[in-house]
Computed example of a mutant assay.
Amino acid sequence: MTLNPLSTPLCVVQATISQHGERAQLVGLSMPSAPFGTLPWQLIGLANYIVGCQTSDTAPSPETFTAHMQARATSAIPSPATLYPYTPWHDGRVRLLLDVTLGPAKVLKWPQASLVIMEQESGSGSCDWVRLSRERTAERILTRTVWEIEAEAQLLAGRLREAPDPSTSSLLEVAQKAARWARESRKAARAALTISQAARARHALRMR
């Protein structure tokens, strides 16, 4: 997909990744915001990386993060794959920014994760807007992913009822499959969080 860096509205994923004993490194990747550079689809790609680190017991790294995103560039729902060496917070072309920090696992192989989401529409008109939100753990990122992809599936289902279309039907199937995966992943993350909280409570009782 050709990217015109001067005019194309962008979706950007920026990751600050810390590793044991090493200085944190920054990775920035971008893609056009249309048609799939939107929050529901891009949260799925990010969540997939986080879950992959947990299931493979692998700490996040700039190399694996970049490889994961670029490997998805030609998938049905692509992820950002073009290196983005700019500062997205001051770039008016950016319509969606996922600014994530990742670090080595602390809770049952789940990596440390925190996410700031910026959605904006900017231009010369009077209706410019910016919306910011934050999810502070891997479990919260997965919960947000469930909310967003389920809402996308409902939107597609409504569109399909109004105007039956094979491409919309196919996309709905992808969204429903992604929603099922996200719910199962969130369930696993919540179970790990419950186990960790119980272990801390037992430790606190023993220390009394």
Results as ranks from 00 to 15, higher is better:
Thr87Met: 10
Met118Gly: 13
Arg131Lys: 09
Ala151Phe: 10
Met1Lys: 08
His68Asp: 03
Lys106Asp: 14
Trp110Val: 09
Leu3Tyr: 08
Trp89Leu: 15
Arg202Asn: 00
Asn4Trp: 00
Ala105Leu: 03
Ile195His: 12
Met69Arg: 02
Arg23Thr: 15
Glu63Arg: 14
Val12Ser: 04
Arg95Asp: 05
Glu148Trp: 06
Pro166Ile: 08
Arg183Asn: 05
Ala178Ser: 14
Leu96Ile: 00
Ile77Met: 00
Leu171Asp: 07
Asn4Arg: 00
Gly28Glu: 06
Glu184Ile: 04
Ile44His: 04
Ala191Met: 14
Val27Phe: 01
Lys106Glu: 14
Cys53Glu: 03
Met118Tyr: 05
Asn48Ile: 01
Gln112Leu: 15
Arg200Asp: 03
Gln197Ser: 11
Gln176Phe: 05
Glu152Ser: 13
Leu43Pro: 03
Gln42Val: 02
Gly92Lys: 14
Thr55Met: 07
Val12Thr: 09
Ile77Ala: 06
Arg183Lys: 15
Glu184Cys: 05
Thr101Phe: 04
Ala24Asp: 13
Ala47Cys: 10
Ala189Glu: 02
Arg131Met: 08
Pro5Ala: 11
Trp147Ala: 12
Ser114Phe: 00
Gln154Asp: 15
Pro166Gly: 05
Thr87Glu: 15
Pro9Asn: 01
Lys106Met: 15
Leu156Arg: 10
Gly123Val: 03
Trp41Asn: 04
Pro104Asp: 06
Ala71Trp: 11
Pro5Phe: 11
Gln112Ala: 12
Thr64Phe: 10
Pro35Gly: 05
Ile141Tyr: 02
Leu26Gly: 07
Ala76Asn: 13
Thr66Arg: 15
Arg23Tyr: 11
Ala175Asp: 01
Ile50Asn: 01
Cys53His: 03
Arg95Gln: 12
His20Glu: 15
Leu26Pro: 03
Ala178Val: 11
Tyr86Cys: 14
Gly123Leu: 01
Lys177Ala: 12
Arg200Gln: 00
His68Gln: 02
Gln120Ser: 08
Glu63Met: 13
Ser124Gln: 08
Ser133His: 00
Thr74Trp: 14
Glu139Phe: 05
Ala15Pro: 07
Gln42Glu: 05
Ala151Cys: 07
Ser30Lys: 12
Tyr84Lys: 05
Arg161Lys: 15
Thr8Asp: 13
Leu160Gly: 00
Trp110Lys: 04
Glu148Gln: 13
Arg180Ser: 11
Gly125Lys: 03
Arg206Leu: 12
Ala34Val: 11
Ala59Thr: 09
Val51Thr: 04
Val27Arg: 01
Pro80Asp: 03
Leu97Met: 05
Arg208Asn: 11
Ser133Asp: 14
Pro166Glu: 11
Pro9Asp: 02
Gly158Glu: 07
Ala59Asn: 15
Ala34Lys: 10
Glu135Lys: 08
Leu115Glu: 01
Ile50Thr: 01
Ile195Asn: 11
Ala76Arg: 10
Val12Trp: 02
Leu155Met: 13
Pro88Met: 14
Gln54Asp: 06
Ile117Pro: 01
Gln120Met: 12
Glu148Tyr: 06
Gly92Arg: 13
Thr194Gly: 09
Thr38Trp: 01
Trp129Gln: 03
Ser18Leu: 06
Arg186Ala: 08
Gln42Gly: 04
Gln19His: 00
Met1Gly: 14
Arg202Pro: 00
Gln14Asp: 01
Ser122Asn: 10
